[in-house]
Simulated scan of single mutants.
Amino acid sequence: MQDITAIVIFLVIGAVAGWLAGQIIKGGGFGLVGNIIVGIIGAIIGGVLFNFLGIATFGLLGSIISATVGAVILLALIGLFKRA
């Protein structure tokens, strides 16, 4: 049961982070599935970046912040490649 709860929390964090990044970068979300995908990839990017910089995050809010920062970076990079 704990595995299911962890997966649900992971997906919710991904959805929230993807939606927030969409609001920050593009001005809109990408739908539930798109937000989750952007948020999950953003969580990976944010986690690596925060670890590299020595920044520690704790709890649900820290996870959302880290994932959102990573998702914003992901969307900014995608935007740069789309323009080129």
Score class of each variant (00 low, 15 high):
1 M>I: 09
1 M>S: 13
1 M>A: 11
1 M>C: 08
1 M>E: 12
1 M>G: 13
3 D>S: 13
4 I>L: 11
6 A>P: 03
6 A>K: 13
8 V>G: 04
8 V>T: 10
8 V>I: 12
9 I>T: 08
11 L>M: 12
13 I>F: 01
15 A>D: 02
15 A>M: 11
15 A>T: 09
16 V>C: 07
18 G>R: 00
18 G>I: 00
19 W>F: 14
20 L>A: 13
20 L>Y: 04
21 A>K: 04
21 A>M: 00
22 G>A: 06
22 G>E: 00
23 Q>M: 06
25 I>P: 01
25 I>A: 01
25 I>W: 00
26 K>D: 13
26 K>I: 06
26 K>Y: 00
28 G>T: 09
30 F>W: 09
31 G>K: 05
34 G>C: 04
35 N>H: 02
35 N>Y: 01
36 I>K: 00
36 I>W: 01
36 I>A: 02
37 I>R: 11
38 V>T: 15
38 V>N: 12
40 I>G: 02
41 I>H: 03
42 G>W: 01
42 G>T: 03
42 G>I: 00
42 G>L: 03
43 A>L: 13
44 I>G: 11
44 I>C: 03
47 G>D: 07
47 G>W: 03
47 G>T: 05
50 F>M: 12
51 N>W: 08
51 N>Y: 04
52 F>E: 14
53 L>I: 12
53 L>K: 14
56 A>M: 08
56 A>T: 12
56 A>C: 06
57 T>Q: 13
57 T>H: 11
57 T>D: 07
59 G>F: 00
61 L>Y: 04
61 L>S: 10
61 L>Q: 05
63 S>Q: 14
63 S>A: 14
64 I>C: 12
64 I>K: 02
66 S>H: 05
66 S>W: 00
66 S>I: 06
66 S>F: 01
67 A>C: 11
67 A>K: 07
68 T>M: 09
68 T>V: 04
68 T>P: 10
68 T>N: 12
70 G>H: 08
72 V>C: 14
72 V>R: 06
73 I>W: 01
73 I>Y: 05
73 I>V: 14
74 L>W: 00
76 A>Q: 12
77 L>C: 13
78 I>L: 15
78 I>H: 04
79 G>E: 12
80 L>A: 10
82 K>E: 15
82 K>Q: 14
83 R>Y: 05
84 A>P: 04
84 A>V: 08
84 A>H: 05
